[in-house]
Design a protein around this nucleic acid. Structure first.
Length: 427
RNA sequence: GGAAGGGUCGCAUAGUAGGUCUAGUGCGGCGGUUUGCUAAACCGCUACAGGGGAAACCCUGUCGAGGGUUCGAAUCCCUCCCCUUCCGCCA
């Protein structure tokens, strides 16, 4: 969330940002609520100050019964008046909080303008889509053919957008996770295996809530929710803490299952495992000092790490600079990596690299004490390192062989016992 | 699931028969004195948030959260949350 003082000082900027981001929030209403709250609060504070003065007078009145009685009588009046004011104060506080949570972050100047994902700007393309000298298959045909994927029985168990990996595909999935975790950990990121279910505050802190609630699985009996990314849990880790500047930056590489309801995506990506309710992901996460340049450096660094992983898997990809309309409300700027998917003849998102300045840190209350003794909200960033299902698609399709097997890129072979190909020829 | 004990301003703690608690103390941190340097010692400062003010400064709130009783709540009452330990169950 934004600093309320910033919104007061730059109301037109914030309104303009909400418009460009197509975010439904009434900044005018927010400011009106804020103004009224301040007036009400001022009255209430005056009454509380009088209450405190009276309390002191009563304490010091001692044997002076008359003064004592008079002060108590006045105190009764003040208490009554205050009780009349307090419900309004509480109501306004709640309204303001809700509106603040809905107010989007300020995008960086380098974020492209645009109306939809069509307007994202490609900034880089690495590796050329492979020219096949045979008719390539899509990942469903390939993996099903190898006996490594069973979608029908998965649907029987859990409905659409489910999958069963079988045989070597299971080892492939684990190999990918191992590969990514080790690669990122070697760069000084502390590996974490975090809870995949988390309390509501984690989701509010991370900005999944209040918007996006319908995308999250709830466990109402336990007041928990299933995370769509380890990012949610990691944000919750340091919530409410005051860190030491000397301990920054904190670099984590988190591993977790990811659960997504995919509400409202009925027509989209219905085939295969492109869009599923559960997958596994290795996630990069950084908490750093409240410094724009440092955020930018880490943003680029996290992109570089993700690119290394993608290149090591020999996948053709491109990098997009997300336009203002496609950027999540909380982000200052975001890059997506998209890998080439031969069966679709296009690039599909596999990574999302974002920085937030102190927007998440304010929501989650993650602060640090600077060397100067001043307490500030930290900056947070995150980027995918590797997501299981979409990477399996890209890997299978891009590295498929004429005989129906899948070539394993060299970097991954150590995690698969040195194996060069996945599956026995079946075509 | 059963039982018990706890949540206090970075960390550790004191404080519950309501009113000098304006939340004490230690550690840590910052600044200073002394010092060839370091350490030690000593002195001072040091919670967070909101509001008012040109400023000095003043006011308000926060002792897990929210209600309540009261002129007045860290302290009493209610509801809830969280943590720890033991028992039970269990991969």
């Amino acid at each position: 969330m934004l600093d309320l003082a910033f919104i007061r000082e730059h109301p037109d900027l914030v309104k303009d940002v909400a418009r460009r981001r197509k975010t439904a929030v009434d900044v005018g209403e927010l400011l009106a609520v804020d103004t009224e709250l301040r007036a009400v609060r001022r009255q209430a504070e005056e009454l509380r100050a009088e209450q405190n003065r009276l309390s002191k007078a009563i304490r010091e009145a001692g044997p002076d019964k008359e003064a004592r009685e008079a002060a108590i009588a006045r105190g009764r009046e003040v208490a009554t008046e205050l009780k009349g004011l307090e419900p309004r104060e509480r109501d306004l506080e709640a309204q303001l909080k809700e509106l603040l949570l809905l107010t989007p972050n300020i995008p960086d100047a380098s974020v492209p303008e645009g109306e939809s994902e069509e307007d994202n700007v490609e900034i880089k393309r690495v590796g050329a889509p492979r020219q096949f000298d045979f008719e390539p298959l899509d990942h469903v045909a390939l993996l099903t053919g190898l006996g490594m994927l069973d979608l029908e029985r998965a649907a029987k168990i859990a409905g659409s957008r489910s999958y069963i990996l079988k045989g070597e595909a299971v080892f492939l999935e684990l190999a990918l996770m191992q590969f990514a975790l080790h690669h990122v950990a070697r760069k000084g990121f502390l590996p974490l295996d975090v809870p995949a279910m988390a309390r509501e505050y984690c989701f509010i802190g991370n900005s999944q809530f209040p918007r996006g609630r319908e995308q999250t699985y709830a466990l109402p009996d336990d007041e928990l929710y299933l995370v769509g990314t380890a990012e949610v849990s990691i944000t919750g880790m340091h919530s409410g803490e005051i860190l030491r500047e000397a301990d920054l930056p904190i670099k984590y590489v988190g591993y977790s299952p990811c659960y997504r309801r995919e509400a409202g995506t009925y027509g989209k990506d219905t085939r295969g495992i492109m869009r599923v309710h559960q997958f596994y992901k290795v996630e990069q996460y950084v908490i750093c000092r409240a410094d724009h340049q440092e955020s930018v450096r880490w943003h680029e660094e996290l992109l570089a790490v993700a690119e290394e992983l993608t290149r090591a898997l020999e996948l053709p990809y491109r990098v997009l600079n997300l336009c203002v309309a496609d950027l999540g409300d909380a982000k200052v700027k975001g890059y997506d990596i998209e890998c080439w998917v031969p069966s679709e003849g296009r690039y599909r998102e596999t990574h999302s690299d974002s920085y937030f300045h102190d927007y998440q840190a304010r929501r989650a209350d993650i602060r640090y004490r600077g060397e100067d003794g001043v307490v500030r909200y930290a900056h947070t960033l995150n980027n995918t390192a590797l997501a299981s299902t979409r990477t399996i698609i890209a890997l299978a399709e891009n590295h498929q062989q004429r005989d129906g097997t899948i070539r394993i890129p060299e970097a991954l072979r150590p995690w698969l016992g040195g194996k060069e190909f996945l599956g026995k020829p079946w075509r």
